[in-house]
């Protein structure tokens, strides 16, 4: 499945990675070769094979509904780039 310049830009946008045109061109080349390698998968007949999401056939364990966490806002916000009045600040979001 051939990769195009627009695919790289689209992925970069979805992943919120700033790329300029020349970087995009560079990644297009790399990603194209990686996908070419990955495309070997298409040659394998997997009819009737169930996808495997986890290596062990384990099932989800459930947690009792208990409040176990206490307020650690100050600790957590010490590593935050911008906070005010306990809120994380980001550039204005327009709805």
């Amino acid at each position: 499945m051939a990769l195009e310049h627009a695919d790289v830009l689209r992925a970069a946008h979805l992943a919120r990675l700033g790329l300029d045109e020349s970087e995009a061109a560079h990644y297009l080349d790399d990603l194209g070769r990686i996908l070419e390698m990955v495309d070997q998968l298409q040659g394998l007949d997997t009819e009737g094979v169930a996808p495997l999401a986890h290596p062990l056939d384990a099932t989800q364990r459930l947690r009792a509904d208990e409040v176990t966490e206490t307020d650690q806002r100050d600790t957590f916000q010490r590593c935050a780039p911008a906070v005010e009045n306990g809120l994380y600040l980001v550039p204005r979001v327009v709805e």
Binding site: R10, A12, Y27, L31, T46
Partner: peptide, 27 residues
């Protein structure tokens, strides 16, 4: 590079051919 590859292979129209197929191969 890996974020871009992962984002691309999960995106609409590619998911079955890449991710699902890879999970089957994983089995």
């Amino acid at each position: 590079r890996r974020i871009l590859i992962g984002t691309h292979t999960l995106s609409e129209g590619f998911f079955d051919a890449y991710y699902k197929q890879a999970q089957k191969v994983r089995r």
